[in-house]
Structures are given as structure tokens and as C-alpha cells.
Design a protein around this nucleic acid. Sequence first.
DNA 1: GGGCGCATGTTAACAACGCATACATATATG
DNA 2: CATATATGTATGCGTTGTTAACATGCGCCC
Lengths: 186, 186
Amino acid sequence: MSTPSNAPYHHGDLRRALLDAALLILEREGETGLGLRDLARAVGVSPAAPYRHFDGRAGLLEALAVTGFQRFTRAMADVSLSQPSDPLAAMGKTYVLFALNNAALFRLMFSPQLKRDNRPGLRMAADAAFATLRHVSGGDAPAGRIAALAAWARVHGLAVLLLDGQIAIQAGEDIDVLVSQIIENQ
Amino acid sequence: MSTPSNAPYHHGDLRRALLDAALLILEREGETGLGLRDLARAVGVSPAAPYRHFDGRAGLLEALAVTGFQRFTRAMADVSLSQPSDPLAAMGKTYVLFALNNAALFRLMFSPQLKRDNRPGLRMAADAAFATLRHVSGGDAPAGRIAALAAWARVHGLAVLLLDGQIAIQAGEDIDVLVSQIIENQ
DNA sequence: GGGCGCATGTTAACAACGCATACATATATG
DNA sequence: CATATATGTATGCGTTGTTAACATGCGCCC
């Protein structure tokens, strides 16, 4: 009975497996529903195994948020490659659609309790994301701090309101065009 | 030793006391840090006592959110009484300042997991709040759904970004005037 | 190549939590 | 005055995050 064939003692790439499974659980159950024991069960390891790869539950959430910012950065960088006619509007749409397609992850990225115990890794990932945001949007042209913040607020607010289901989608209304209309308004 | 003088068996107004203490803990520790046992300890009752007044932890959070929407509604209604020169901007400022002064409560009010198991009480309180929002802002004048949503998104996004500490406050910068500038931009 | 160090995974235990049930007590009602 | 009901207590169950001690096997060094 010594674990004969499959299920080797060492997993191989447990960290990656944990992150993948955690993302699934996160999007399905929300941040509260993501428990370390559930996660370990889902991957098929012991409850204490994740502690070898993450600094407790907070460490796992941080790692998830970091991957979130990396994807976000990539999505924003890809916008500039497509050479859109209106770069700012295109970026805004990408911003909102990223939030909608990665709801729980997006919320986690901006979670205040993660920001509180500010781990350097998360801070770096977030700074990198916002740096490409600035770079892609204005080409570092200082179009006014106020105007930039106003644009950011409108896009971020739209994302959050849609995410939380506060903006009621009317019958036959397409979210995509609604986002475009709101972003391009004024 | 039969609890001689103080600490009567019945508290008197435990529900109110629980809500007050819960608000304090909420703003100090965040939603995750608000536990029923902690709360009961803080008020000085047994761990099971809160269950007589709230439907478990979710019920407590719902009650807190309802009081939040009531305060929010009141704050918005007070704006119209002051007869400002620019009602929309004044309302926006009130919106953001309410969020900043009731950070955790504001987050709870827009919490998606509370909205999920949509309890009628919370839904009614939220609807009432948004109704006065519409009434005060435009006097029910349909200035265009898109424009209204855009304005809401900008204000809400500004609140959330400030709440999460994403908008860095520069040295010697006053949040109040920054909010005004961003809201009145465009 | 053989032996060993160390990363990796397991087991077991602790405290705290949400929650449900059964019980005690005070208030209100007939 | 008696009893019904609302309110708070006592206790126990199952789960969670976390830690410490133990087991295992991959890979490096001599």
C-alpha cells in the first residue's frame, strides 16, 4: 500500500496547479469562497501543502493579484499594437472588458485589504500596470493630471458598476456598445 | 453570585448596540474582520445572542448595508435643500465624501455577495437611495441615459479609487478641492 | 556513481469561527 | 396572579487558517 503507481509524493509543479485551481474557484465562488483547504482538496494534496508555496492565505491572494496585474498589463499593451483610431477610447473599452471577463480577479487586484499589508511584489506589479497605462494612453504627454484622473475615474467606475450589477442592462441592449457609448460620451 | 447589580439578563436594546459596535469594528477591521463572536464579546453578550436579532452573519451585514443606504439617501436629499448653484456637482461631491467618510460601509453597500442573495430589505433601501439620486440630480428630466450613466460612473469611480488608495494624494494637496476639480472637469 | 542536503509534501494538533439546538430568565399579557 | 413569549445563555458540531514535527525523494557535490 505504498502509493503504488500514480500520485507521486512530489507533485511536479504544485504552485502552478494551485494558482490555476485557485483562479477557477475564485471566479466561481468569490474571494470569500476560496479556502486553502478547499484548494488543496481540489488539487489533491494535503491541507498544509500550499503553505510551502505561499505565505498563507494572504500570500496566495497576493500571488493571484499579481498574475491579474500581469494579464492586465499585457491587455493594455496589446491595445497600442492594434493602432486604433482613438487610443484612449480603445483603452477604456479594454479596461472595462478586462474587468467584466475577470470579475473576481479584478476585484481582488483592487482589494484594499491586500493593499493594506503592502507586499512589494503586488506593489511592483500594480505600478508596472499603471506605468504602461500612462505610457499607452498619453505617450507620457501630460494632458493634465485632473483630466487623466477624470478619465480613469469614469472608466474604473463604469467597470465597477457593471461588475456589481448596479447598471441594469435593458432588454436587447448590448453591453459592448453600451460601454462604447458611455466611454465616448464627452 | 446571581449577577447581583449591573449586567441585567436582558440588555434593553441589544440590536441597536450590536449595530453600533458592528459599525465601529467594520470601519476598523474591514468586512472580513467583523465576526459574530467578536461582536458579541465587544457588546458583552453570549456568542449566540446576535442570532436573536439577525439572520446569521449575512443578516447582520444586510442590516448594516441598509443603514448605510439610509444615511446615503439622507445625505443626498440634504444636498437639494441647500439649493446649490450647480446641483449635479454638489451631489457628486457629497457622493464621494460620503464614501470617504464611511469607507467600509460604502464598500459593503455595493458588495456583490450581499447583492447576490438579494434580500428584499436591502433592495428596497438601495432603490430608495437611487430614486432620490435621480430625483435630486435631474428632477426626473431625462437628460439621456448615457449621459447619466457616464456621470454616475465618473463619480462612483472617483470614490472607489480614492477609497482604495489608488489615487495618490500629492504633497499639500487637499482631497476636497481635488474632488471638486475632477467632478467639474468637462 | 553514491551519499547526503534540502526542498517538498504529510500528519496531527490548536484556536477561532459560523451555526444549530436545548435551556434559563425576564417581560408582557390574559 | 399565572402563563406565554421574547430575549439571552450554555453547549456542541463541523469547518477553517495556521503551525510544528515528521516523511520522502530529487539533485548536487565529492
